[in-house]
Design a protein around this nucleic acid. Structure first.
Lengths: 211, 211
DNA sequence: AGCTACATACATTCACGTATGGATGTAAAC
DNA sequence: GTTTACATCCATACGTGAATGTATGTAGCT
């Protein structure tokens, strides 16, 4: 029986960690509070002391990992260098991929959010996050279109769809395939190639990205 | 009270339809047999007469929609014209997109399968389907590599990853965005552009695809 | 001593599975 | 064509376990 102030916070974190792992592995609905408590080395009593119910843990997990990440994206897009939006997208996209590939928490939250798109709360979160991303892409690519950087074959909005598909597709496919390919290196490579194909003159120059 | 032979088959279909809609909307775990029965205009008694349990309906739904579709993909890939694998991929991929965009059942099954990737049975189905798709892509692109059709910048396997990402990404993003863009026309356009960027010499020629 | 941080015990709900009953279709017998 | 016998198709009722939420107990920090 340990009930120090720091100990309490520790068990709270253990519960959060256990819930995150179990949610990502078996889904939210199929995970029971008993399982979470056992995995955290406590009983349901501890759970109900720290959290109201299952959705409360979910909120805590979201606030801990996803929300800050979303804020970072928002900030970065506002301070973006708009003289070369495509280069900015490639640079920050590549950075995000390598961070994501190394952060188990983000990976688990991604699985949780995308697989629980019906659970009212997560549905709203996911919709908001994607709307946010979409607005960023749309804004940057509209700018790129004005600057004459984009191919004639596609409109700026179509390019935005293409990039959303590529980017989210990379994350989804990597997780679904159980990390069958190196997300950081190959992801950067594919992103570079794809963005290059969206530039006005896809010259065969071997020049690298401009981070 | 009607219990003719044809009537029975009709209620069976109504139960299947209701289950498909509810599974796609609220997820499998969060859907109750009572809800399915009510949506089908019957009671749980009728459900248990036609099906063993919840996973039994899922199997029936899979056999009805997803399995035949998978078989079609397999057949097509075996009878593929291997002289121009990239053109074949673009052609059959485009056709699949337009069929998918018009078939509510396939769309619902896609949501169900991708959001229930933890439920033991669907996990195996999804893994099998994706492994199947992966083998097809790998085989066709290895052939394209031998024929010297691919860019020097990417290996055939990397191109396969790129195409998997693009293709699955299109379906996922379309459904997630609640059909915010025209999957058939824009999907075909992006697929064409992307495949063109994977060819050896991305000449700026405006030549259309060769279906 | 009083509150914190849990464990334990209890009550309740809810979905599931099964058992039963009944109304009608279906086929054979006459 | 009617009647009988039976199987089909489905509704209703009941039993059960599992998960939830709450109430209570209690050892230790402060």
């Amino acid at each position: 029986m340990r009930r120090s102030k720091a100990d309490a916070e520790q068990t709270r974190l253990k519960i959060l960690e256990a819930a995150e792992v179990l949610f990502a592995e078996h889904g939210i609905a199929r995970t029971t509070l008993e399982q979470i408590a056992r995995a955290a080395g406590v009983t349901r009593g501890a759970f109900y002391w720290h959290f109201k119910d299952k959705t409360d843990v979910l909120s805590a997990l979201y606030e801990r990992t996803t929300a800050p990440q979303l804020a970072l994206i928002r900030e970065a897009s506002e301070q973006a260098d708009l003289t070369d939006p495509l280069a900015f997208l490639e640079c920050s996209g590549t950075r995000f991929l390598s961070v994501f590939a190394a952060d188990r928490c983000q990976q688990r939250m991604h699985r949780i959010m995308s697989n629980a798109a019906m659970s009212e709360e997560t549905a709203a979160w996911l919709a908001q996050a994607n709307a946010e991303l979409w607005r960023v892409f749309q804004r940057l690519l509209a700018r790129a279109g004005e600057a004459g950087q984009l191919t004639d074959e596609l409109t700026p909005d179509e390019v935005a769809v293409s990039l959303m598909v590529m980017f989210n597709g990379l994350l989804n496919e990597w997780l679904r395939s159980d990390r069958a390919f190196p997300l950081d290196t190959l992801g950067a490579k594919l992103l570079h190639h794809h963005i290059a194909s969206l530039r006005r003159q896809p010259a065969c120059a071997e020049g690298g990205p401009t981070p």
